[in-house]
Amino acid sequence: MGKAAQRKGGDGARVIVLPADFRLGAVAGVKADLVEALEAAGAQLDGGAVERVDTAALQLLLAYRREAAARDLSPAWRGVSEVMRDAAGVLGLARDLELPANMPA
């Protein structure tokens, strides 16, 4: 439920690490981070450690991605777990989330 962990990537960019249990209970906290990131010209999303995910989580990422695109921020995924990739596929959201074709989790 807490906020997603944030750290600076090696290249100095802001990185938002998505929680392992990224479901309804966690979305409010992650949303706050994402809103902040938008103000700070975007961030990289690291979903490599996500073990559980639901519609609410993917919907949140979708809303983020859509606003980021409107602000001309390019997508920047640092990691996507298999669980996330699979869920996005089931919900037909993989393309809109601009998930990288294949990236080591």
Binding site: V30, Q59, L60, Y64, G92
Partner: peptide, 19 residues
């Protein structure tokens, strides 16, 4: 084959009620 419908998704992230 699943096609999402976005018409009710708020335009800004801030306006999204995430739950």
């Amino acid at each position: 084959a699943v096609t999402p419908i976005f018409d009710r998704l708020p335009a800004t992230l801030a306006a999204l009620e995430p739950t």
